[in-house]
Amino acid sequence: MTDLLTAENALNLVMLLFLQAVLGFDNLLYISIESQRAPVAQQKAVRFWGIVIAVALRVVLLFVMIHLIDLLNEPFFIMDWDGILTGGVNFATCVFLIGGAFIMYTAVKEISHMLSIEHLGTDIKAGSGKSAAQVVGLIVFMNLVFSFDSVLSALAISDVFAILATAIVLSGLAMLLLAEKVTDFLKKNRMYEVLGLFVLLIVGVVLLGEAGQAAVHGMEAAGMAHEDAKALALHVFGYEIVPMSKSTFYFSVAVLFVVEIIQSRYKRKLTAERSAVARRV
């Protein structure tokens, strides 16, 4: 126990909490949006159990990855269709590909559903047809997809299971506290829900980009030289799949929100001016 109470572990815990906060933004956004697809009376319980189960499974995932990191890093298939598709495929590649494709599908489907609404006063969630158990399952599944990236990043900071698990549990508690507030905000400001869906669409693109480099990062973590690991990067028609940087992602999100705020203020100003002109006439 005394071995854990060191200045190095304390600093690592602070860094891990910051990392979880940064990487957990898209996760929290997904939980807030997806939970609204459940029956209204069960939405709060869905968010609670979705987060609790997901955090518990994230700790299990962390334990597994610490003990099986070499096996998970090792590519189990090498694609060598020269000029068409080349690169290595490991466990992380599959997780990012499936998760990225699924979250892009979800975002596009919900955006299309919003565009098909004829009466704005109608509850857009009423036609989702998802049970509470289905929504909890989706939240847990996507939480694990998001977790994979954050766990890999966390392992680069510390390999002490107790410190890593503590950071995960504390981030889970933070999500429990914030999920209700974020959901209420989206309900009161429906325009930001549309923005949230576009942000999730970008997240899907980010995950697909991560898939292209998953085998590279995995083998570098296992000790392979960068030049040798680079040969495992996915290439499509000769072009390397490169992940979007976190700074680019957050800059894109910030631009989306700034544009929406400016557009909303301009729309209100334009409406006020038209009303003033109509009164004068």
Rank of each mutant, 00 (worst) to 15 (best):
T183N: 12
E273G: 05
L144M: 14
V160F: 07
G99K: 02
K246V: 14
V108I: 14
F25L: 14
L61C: 04
V135W: 02
V255G: 06
F198Y: 09
M175F: 10
E180D: 15
G218H: 05
L71D: 15
K267V: 06
P39C: 01
Y192Q: 07
G223P: 03
A214Y: 06
A272W: 01
A174I: 04
S116K: 12
I163G: 08
D149P: 08
E110T: 05
V140P: 03
S147P: 11
F249K: 13
F185W: 14
V277K: 14
L115K: 12
V206L: 11
I202W: 00
V242L: 11
G137T: 02
E210D: 12
K181T: 09
Q43A: 01
F146L: 06
E210C: 01
V14S: 15
M142R: 00
A167T: 06
A254L: 15
A41W: 00
L28F: 04
G209M: 03
A156K: 15
R37N: 15
H119A: 13
D159E: 07
A215Y: 09
G127V: 05
D26H: 01
G212K: 00
G83K: 05
A101C: 03
Y266T: 10
V151D: 04
R280Q: 15
M79A: 14
L256Q: 11
F185T: 10
L138V: 03
E118Y: 09
M224D: 08
K125D: 15
F63D: 09
A225V: 08
N12D: 14
F96V: 02
L155M: 15
A154T: 11
T2V: 13
N90A: 05
V281Q: 13
V242D: 09
L144C: 07
A101M: 08
S153E: 13
G24N: 03
T106I: 05
F198V: 06
A101W: 00
S35R: 04
L155Q: 13
L62H: 07
W81K: 10
V259F: 06
I84H: 09
A38W: 02
N73V: 03
I202E: 02
L23M: 14
I53M: 09
G121K: 08
G50W: 00
F249W: 03
E260P: 12
H226Q: 10
L19T: 15
F161A: 11
P243Y: 11
V160E: 13
Y239E: 12
L155H: 03
I66T: 12
N143C: 02
K230N: 12
S147R: 04
I163H: 09
G209R: 02
D80F: 07
Y250H: 03
K125W: 14
G100Q: 01
A214H: 05
L208R: 02
S264I: 08
R37T: 10
Y266K: 10
R190I: 14
L16D: 06
V255R: 06
Q43S: 09
N27L: 12
H119I: 10
G87F: 04
V52D: 07
